[in-house]
């Protein structure tokens, strides 16, 4: 594992932001994984010294501004998710691929549940169960990255 430049973290988050900004609509929007959160989790596991809870909060605020909803909701969801990623970072990198995927899925679902609760408090309508599909496409995306070369760095025992 070589030293990671903070710049590569910011560039990858910017790329994730671009992916998020693509004009998704309909089923595409429902199935779109949260690329930004996935990127954040990836860096929190791989480079916890550069990507911390503060980074997650800041990125969350940017996402809120772009989405045009209530400012702070994504920031809160990302902060909490980042906490659970950071707190168990040392254990997570020792997990095998399956265990890690399970934990990341739980993190993605946690972020969605937080957003869900905030929206319901804000008087929004409840979307159907399809709302949570994004977490599952997210974990599929995570697995693809996991099995690629990039994935070698986020678990020490890839079996």
């Amino acid at each position: 594992m070589q030293a990671i430049k903070p710049l590569s973290i910011y560039v990858s988050i910017l790329l994730a932001l671009l992916l998020q900004l693509l004009p998704w609509s309909g089923w595409g929007l429902l199935l779109r994984p949260d690329f930004i959160l996935l990127t954040l989790i990836y860096w929190m596991l791989r480079a916890p010294q550069h990507c911390s809870i503060g980074t997650a909060w800041l990125v969350g605020i940017v996402v809120d501004l772009i989405n045009g909803g209530l400012i702070g909701q994504n920031a809160l969801a990302y902060t909490l998710t980042a906490f659970f990623a950071a707190n168990y970072q040392r254990r997570l990198v020792l997990f095998n691929v399956g265990e890690q995927a399970g934990y990341v899925l739980a993190l993605l679902l946690l972020a969605q549940v937080i957003l869900f609760v905030v929206k319901l408090f804000g008087g929004g309508e409840a979307p159907g169960w399809t709302y949570f599909l994004a977490s599952f496409t997210g974990i599929i995306f995570w697995q693809i990255v996991s099995f690629s070369r990039l994935g070698n760095d986020i678990h020490l025992h890839p079996h």
């Binding site: 911390s52 809870i53 503060g54 997650a56 909060w57 969350g60 605020i61 209530l70 400012i71 702070g72 909701q73 920031a75 809160l76 902060t79 909490l80 906490f83 950071a86 707190n87 905030v118």
Partner: peptide, 19 residues
């Protein structure tokens, strides 16, 4: 991490309130 969590969660909540 816990201290950071409390700080940033509080910050998010106050931003939401302000908005």
């Amino acid at each position: 991490p816990l201290a950071r969590l409390i700080f940033f969660a509080a910050l998010s909540l106050s931003v939401m309130m302000a908005d």
